[in-house]
Design a protein around this nucleic acid. Structure first.
Lengths: 208, 208
DNA sequence: ACAAATTTAGACAGGCTTGTCCAATTCGTC
DNA sequence: GACGAATTGGACAAGCCTGTCTAAATTTGT
């Protein structure tokens, strides 16, 4: 395991103040001196950890957004699949959990460091997702008033049942992720499905 | 300010490891010795803080749930009002923010301490709220499949636009709270409104 | 195989924190 | 005002952690 990865784990587990360089070195399998040679001091190491996590998480999120169903065959199933991918690959994985915890725990102490994350992360994520929903609406699959609001509400809904687990730093099971996504997408579609034809396969009909 | 209150503030700001008893004593306006006289040691003090916050937060939450609109005049307005009260009095206030942060930061280190919170807090909150929604559904104001799911989704929706602010430990403005609640309730009602009569005042008609 | 660069173990100083002890002072109550 | 209880400030030992230094060992490139 690399030094930054080990440091991420220890900073998350123990908090910035509680993290101890000897432990990080041991966990990384190197000597303490090597940690200092590579990263200068504790604060620089912390910054490196946050930058590393931010970069990887953003990459994962945008890769996942690229898989958003633009031409859905089965809107519910496709959105559930998307939500599950988003959760599994970005929110619940190691990087996602670590970054979230560091932001929550140390965000107030390093405002400029996390301001960068805030702009590049949630800001762009929401924009990109909103654009995808706008496209679905434009294509007649959904009836959406404000795509930005819809995007945020989509994320909130598919995570609705995982909040507590996230709060305590736990990892939800695959089944919990699927159930929360399914319930969330159903409610989302109840709210934003096109109102004209009540039946399920309206989208396919529009394009037929 | 009491010792526990000062300790809550410092534990939140600095994390458990980073919190220093001298600072707590200074912030509380007492001598360090008094802190030790009253609370034994740092860990006992921390436990006292968490218990105190948990208790007050739960009291606030249940008081707010008691104000849930059982016989709504205007369902949207009443639910928005409820959501705003919940946010302002329980989630965004001092106790709520502190407790959330402590759970996120130290939840893994004190599992038994926060297990208590988990059972008494979210568990009972969700049950109580689900019961209120079930009642609304039974009275014909809503069409709800699973009241527990609906309750969690309601909370997720009305907080959808405040997540980032919460993550960074900030306090949303009154206007942000209202907007998030309004958008959330609208979507909630789009999803769970009774389907039979499409007009707005269906609830009133049913009772007329 | 050799030389340069890197890594290692350990010692070390300096600083900070916890928790205790104690004498002096203040406070509450009668 | 007097007396017991609580509070205070400060000194103190013990421990831990950071960050530096050094000499030895190991790896790397050629």
């Amino acid at each position: 395991m690399s030094v930054v990865d080990a440091a991420a784990a220890v900073f998350c587990r123990e908090g910035y103040a509680g993290a101890n360089i000897d432990l990080i070195a041991a966990e990384a399998g190197v000597s303490r001196q090597t940690v200092y040679n590579h990263h200068g001091d504790k604060e620089k190491l912390f910054v490196a950890v946050v930058r590393d996590l931010t970069e990887r998480c953003n990459a994962g999120i945008f890769a996942t957004i690229a898989s958003f169903p633009d031409q859905p065959m089965d809107l519910e199933a496709d959105l559930v699949g998307f939500a599950v991918r988003m959760n599994r690959n970005c929110i619940c994985n190691r990087d996602g959990r670590f970054l979230r915890k560091l932001i929550q725990a140390e965000g107030e102490r390093y405002p400029e460091l996390f301001a960068e994350w805030r702009e590049q992360g949630p800001g762009r994520t929401w924009s990109a997702l909103a654009a995808r929903f706008a496209r679905l609406a434009f294509a007649g699959h959904l009836a959406i008033g404000d795509p930005d609001v819809a995007a945020r509400q989509f994320l909130a809904l598919v995570n609705a049942e995982l909040q507590i687990t996230f709060m305590l730093g736990g990892v939800p099971t695959e089944e919990e992720v699927l159930r929360s996504a399914t319930n969330g997408v159903r409610t989302f579609l109840s709210a934003f499905a096109r109102k004209k034809s009540p039946a399920g396969k309206q989208a396919a009909l529009v394009h037929a």
